[in-house]
Nucleic acid binder design. Structure first.
Length: 579
RNA sequence: GCGCCGGUAGCUCAAUGGAUAGAGCAACAGCCUUCUAAGCUGUAGGUUACAGGUUCGAGUCCUGUUCGGCGCACCA
């Protein structure tokens, strides 16, 4: 039994004995005091119960601690107005240090989601359109969510769903048809640039030109029917161009997909569920379209098949559900990592899927509605061809890092280092803030490498790596060759803070994975780095004469480097040994 | 009109209903004669948008106001 559970059980028993008051263990909450001087754990139970027990919080707290029978030298104290604070013996933390060194990169994992199959759908860029800063937030967040779930022992299915049919394509093809194949660009960058321009041209024409609008609608129809070989060919070509570029980006951000779905694949599968939905009166006709009237569920009205008889995005979602079920059967949870602007869409399609296929979908769907990305300066619009491209951002970060390290002789692979650190800087800037908060992206700030930044953490890791490299055999440094109980007496302030902070990692990972908030990990790692750097400044490791202290510090450095690396890994960020 | 999200230091963000609201950046002042200065130490910076309420205790919960973002039938 861990310390936390022991304390809770004891409080529960004491309340029963002393006050004849029954309370569930889960209702007793132990908190981490913000101020570490208040101890390692804190309980507010005495204040909570003042009314019910009709006694002052202090009185209750005093009675509780009188009766507590805790094992293992836990210090208990009372603070105004009635907090009960627990201070754990140093031994717990030195023992945990041994645990980290033993478990290595598995430290922090748990088995909360063992046996669960979770499908995470993320990225979804649309072919023919650009992969912009919004997609970057999506894929970086999605990748981290996948890794966090895997750390909880879930069996994760990574999928991507991409819109390769619909009006946005038709707008593009309308402009695409005017390009002479002789003028087709050669490089992937030029190709995607052209596609972006074509979309902007088509979208503008659609809005401003009556004739163009009719033509685009006709192209859209032909995309669905596949009756026009010329259009089919252009469609294939543009899609290939797009996907080539998308895969380049996936690779750069260390993402892979087990299955990439396309809207075009769903088209043949839509009729059946639509029929079924009509029979069950889930969908109804209205003004020539087939709609779901969500009002009775407090939801919006949304169109599943338009009055032209073409399925909308909503309709295709039903086809996708059929396809997924066919390929993967029932999964425990479907996570859709899609920005908050689609909240209404998911609320409705979730409800329809649940009504159609309760066994497969009821209580098995979650829309991770993360917030929008915008620019701190200026506005973005793909319609106007004015977008910040994902790749450009990564390139700029890469270049900036390249400049910084170009004169550092000790770094071997400068290009690779610049890439890893550059990508890390961008990922960090996205993940360090809550996903559920609007992100005002500022390129200058995200490539600022000081303080709360990816490179700062990576740099801290490299410092640790450097000590371990020069400390000789890493394996040996990884062994704690000292008497843990005795050594705690001699800890410096920095050592103690670092040691204690390392022990929190597993609970941070668990909370982050439960709430889909990688920023918890970022905050933790930043504080870990600060504590390590402070330790680094004031506690010499390699030149320490006393062998016992030297070994302890090497162990501490090793453990810190393991946790830094693992934490960054959960965020989808790589480390370098030298930078 | 209805719904969802947000407003915390000059800027970007933290803060499971808890103890003195914390960081980073920017500004200012220090530290390279110890393992990487992408580092460390310090100073300054706050009516937590506003007004009520609930609570032993509110940045956090409730109500209203206000400002901003997003969404609400044939786009995805």
């Amino acid at each position: 039994m861990d310390v936390k559970t022991q304390i809770k059980n004891q409080i529960q028993e004491t309340l029963k004995e002393k006050f004849d008051y029954e309370i569930g263990v889960d209702e007793i909450r132990l908190e981490r005091p913000q101020n570490e001087e208040h101890g390692d754990w804190s309980s507010n139970i005495a204040m909570q119960l003042t009314k019910e027990l009709k006694k002052s919080p202090k009185e209750i707290a005093e009675k509780i601690i009188e009766e507590l029978d805790l094992e293992g030298e836990i210090e208990v104290s009372i603070a105004e107005p009635g907090f009960i604070n627990f201070k754990l013996p140093g031994r717990i933390y030195t023992e945990n240090l041994g645990k980290i060194l033993e478990e290595k990169e598995l430290y922090g994992n748990n088995t909360r989601l063992s046996g669960k199959r979770i499908m995470v759908e993320f990225a979804h860029p649309n072919p023919f359109k650009s992969f912009h800063i919004g997609h970057l937030r999506n894929i970086i967040l999605g990748e981290s969510i996948v890794r966090m779930l895997e750390s909880q022992n879930a069996d994760v299915i990574r999928v991507n769903y991409q819109g390769d049919v619909g009006m946005h394509i038709a707008k593009n093809l309308w402009a695409f048809m005017d390009i002479d194949p002789k003028d087709y660009p050669k490089t992937a960058d030029e190709k995607t640039k052209l596609l972006g321009e074509l979309y902007a041209k088509g979208a503008t024409a659609f809005e401003e030109d009556e004739k163009a609008r009719a033509e685009i609608k006709e192209i859209n129809r032909k995309i669905y029917t596949k009756e026009d070989p010329g259009i089919n060919q252009l469609w294939e070509l543009g899609k290939t161009w797009s996907l080539e570029k998308f895969h380049e980006i996936y690779e750069r951000v260390y993402t892979t997909f087990e299955r990439e779905y396309f809207e075009s694949e769903t088209l043949d599968l839509i009729d059946k569920p639509i029929e079924k939905a009509k029979e069950k009166r889930i969908l109804k006709e209205s003004d020539g379209a087939l709609i779901f009237n969500g009002e009775e569920y407090g939801l919006d009205i949304r169109v599943f098949v338009n009055s032209q008889g073409l399925p909308t995005y909503e309709g295709k979602e039903l086809g996708l559900a059929v396809l997924k079920n066919r390929e993967y059967g029932i999964v425990d949870l479907h996570i859709h990592n899609v920005a908050v602007e689609q909240k209404s869409f998911f609320a409705v399609t979730f409800k329809v899927k649940e009504l159609l296929w309760p066994e497969e979908f009821k209580n098995r769907q979650y829309h991770n509605a993360y917030e929008f990305v915008g620019l701190k300066k200026g506005k973005m619009s793909s319609r106007k061809g004015n977008v910040v491209l994902g790749n450009d951002i990564l390139n700029i970060a890469h270049e900036r890092i390249g400049e910084i390290i170009k004169d550092r002789e000790e770094i071997d692979g400068k290009e690779e280092t610049a890439e890893i650190v550059g990508v890390g800087a961008i990922k960090w800037s996205f993940l360090k803030i809550s996903p559920f908060k609007y992100l005002a992206f500022d390129l200058e700030e995200s490539v600022n490498f000081e303080g709360d930044s990816g490179p700062y953490i990576q740099y801290t890791y490299a410092r640790a790596a450097s000590i371990l490299r020069e400390g000789g055999n890493n394996e040996k440094a990884g062994k704690v060759e000292f008497d843990a109980a005795k050594y705690t007496q001699k800890l410096s302030a920095e050592e103690e803070k670092l040691l204690k902070w390392l022990e929190r990692f597993p609970e941070v990972v668990e909370a982050a994975s439960k709430e889909y908030m990688p920023n918890y990990i970022a905050t933790y790692l930043f504080e870990l780095s600060q504590k390590f750097n402070s330790f680094y400044k004031n506690n010499i490791v390699l030149k320490e004469n006393e062998k016992e202290i030297r070994n302890f510090r090497l162990a501490l450095v090793k453990a810190t480097s393991l946790v830094l690396k693992r934490g960054l890994d959960l965020m989808g960020i790589k480390t370098v040994e030298k930078m």
